[in-house]
Amino acid sequence: MTLRNPIVFIGSIAVVFAILFLWWLASVTGTVSRAFVPNPFDAWAALVRGFSRGDLLPQTIGTVGRMLQGWLLASLIGVVLGAAIGLSRTARDYLQPTLEFLRPLPASAIIPVAIALMGLSPGMALTVVAFGSLWPTLLGTIHGFAAVEPRLKEVARCLQMSGPAFAWKIGLPNAMPDILAGMRLSMTVALILAIICEMLASQAGLGTAILLAARAFQSSELFAGIALLGAIGLVSNLALRAVEIRALAWQNSH
């Protein structure tokens, strides 16, 4: 849509720079205290310095790794478990009400329980990230498998398809949009929980880095960390959206 009109496209980029300019203006005129909000150039310099000195890269890898590991684990469990629950009417009757009750529970609320059971360990962080990001994928998968068009079920019965064949050939393609949408939401949750766990358990990562930067009143380092976390969120979201478009292209073709 942005490519429709080149002037509008250039204008939209100008808006981004206008926002950055306002940030710069606020910091140099002293509208907001330098202790809180740094000059954007200082934040950029802190970002470059952090990477060249070599402590930002391992921290970024730590956070991204924690997020991805937990998310992959959650996706795997969510899809397999979700397919099993979604395909069986009995399982849905017994499990869905409990799952619906757990859905609005803040994922971070299980952190104290995880700390009580596992201590402030990397395993605790991974468990929390995986458990918390499980829900969107799990519930999306259940919905996708449960909402198969009745006529397709009839066709499968006529073809005398076996249960696994039905799940693979009809259930999975049908559930794909819900699964992928769930996985994208799960990724967002995974990043948030990875940051929180780092802050609480002092695991090496960007969450700890920005907390320490704030305590030391190093606002440039703080903003560099926030920007980096935003970039991680942006890139992971864009990547999953690209996968979604590619994997679901067949659905739009007819």
Binding site: T2, V8, S12, V16, I192, M199, I210, L222, L234, N237
Partner: peptide
């Protein structure tokens, strides 16, 4: 429609910042 097109890149750029990443900043302020 023009306003949507003008604002989209900014929104897409700032929206993915995880809210919890602002905890240290808000605590400071």
């Amino acid at each position: 429609k023009t306003a949507i097109a003008l604002s989209t890149p900014s929104v897409e750029l700032f929206r993915p910042i995880p809210s919890v990443a602002l905890i240290p900043l808000a605590m400071l302020v």
